[in-house]
């Protein structure tokens, strides 16, 4: 194994982590401020990917598609918040799990109704295709590099939004004391709709970015939804920093596990058995990591005091 391959795999892990962060950021924001578990977050990711694919196919422009993905997911998020979610804020987690589970069923079938049962086509813009040569002679796809940069930019942007702007101040205040903020004359209902739509837009954006690399199809949000939950639980629910660290941890652990475990096992057993055992353990690895972290830090790495 060369050093270049190792570094490339670490980069792949970081890139995977960044896409998880885009999902996890919205999820953790919505939970931190509104105390809501949203299983339907993966459906908003799917909505973004479908909107991007449909608009890109219709207009021929990926960039229009990308804009559409953000708009469609934000709109879907706002509508869902307005019709369903706002009735769930003072319910317990159980009701929230069930209601958003129902939303998954509804969204998945609705998408199939609108777009048919076959996966859609979505390709990257010509501008981002091809690969670049990094120091050390690593050939790396430009698109994946772009995703890493976009993810860092989004993380920085969210940090600024929350730490420095007026709406960010309200978000922080709303998270720590809802009644007090309402008493100060802030329209809590609108604030919540905006936050939910913001989280949805991030999910939709992630769906479009990842849809380029994957299959745009019904159900695409579910695997990534579970990973996003793992991320925010590891990081500490409600913490943006935790979501970022958790994403990178999960992304790198998963990628390096898939890469290294079969090789490690092949040192002690015959190769074909090592591939099977290694792959099996790799698929369980992030859940093992999560259980270990929670066993020692029951509220995640960056617990938010509440």
């Amino acid at each position: 194994m060369s050093l270049a391959l190792f570094v490339e795999q670490v980069l792949n892990g970081v890139q995977f982590g960044v896409t998880l962060f885009l999902m996890a950021a919205g999820l953790t924001l919505v939970f931190g401020v509104m105390g809501l578990i949203n299983l339907a977050h993966g459906s908003l990711y799917m909505v973004g990917a479908f909107a991007c694919a449909a608009v890109a196919a219709w207009s021929g422009s990926f960039w229009l598609g990308l804009a559409a993905s953000i708009a469609a997911a934000a709109a879907a998020g706002a509508v869902v918040e307005w019709v369903v979610i706002r009735r769930l804020y003072d319910r317990d987690h159980l009701d929230q799990v069930l209601a958003t589970f129902a939303l998954i069923l509804i969204f998945s079938e609705a998408m199939r109704w609108l777009f048919g049962p076959f996966p859609l086509y979505l390709d990257m813009p010509g501008l981002l295709s091809g690969s670049v040569t990094l120091p050390g002679g690593i050939e790396y796809p430009l698109y994946r590099l772009t995703i890493i940069l976009v993810g860092i930019a989004v993380a920085a942007g969210l940090h600024l939004l929350i730490a420095r702007t007026r709406i960010g101040m309200r978000i922080r205040a709303g998270a720590s004391d809802r009644e007090m903020v309402a008493a100060l004359g802030v329209d809590i209902a609108t604030l919540y709709t905006i936050i939910f739509a913001l989280g949805a837009a991030l999910a939709g954006f992630a769906g479009a970015l990842v849809g380029v690399n994957q299959s745009v199809q019904v159900g695409m949000g579910e695997p990534v939804l579970i990973l996003a939950f793992v991320v925010i639980v590891i990081g500490g629910i409600g913490s943006l920093k935790g979501a970022l660290v958790g994403s990178l941890l999960v992304g790198v652990t998963d990628t390096m596990g898939r890469f290294l475990l079969p090789q490690i096992f092949s040192l002690v057993m015959d190769p074909s058995q090592a591939t099977t055992v290694g792959a099996a353990l790799a698929s369980m690895l992030i859940y093992i990591v999560m259980a270990l972290i929670l066993a020692f830090r029951p509220r995640g790495l960056f617990a938010v005091t509440s």
């Binding site: 939970f31 578990i37 987690h93 799990v97 579970i226 939950f229 793992v230 639980v233 629910i237 099977t276 792959a279 099996a280 698929s283 369980m284 859940y287 093992i288 999560m290 259980a291 929670l294 066993a295 029951p298 509220r299 995640g300």
Partner: peptide, 27 residues
């Protein structure tokens, strides 16, 4: 392990353990 946590953490850690067993059985 799980009962050291509570609330959403409990929901998610029980899910994590179930996923571990799920992937184990599949492979």
């Amino acid at each position: 392990v799980s009962l050291r946590t509570s609330g959403v953490y409990f929901i998610m850690i029980t899910l994590a353990f179930a996923q571990m067993i799920y992937y184990f059985v599949i492979s």
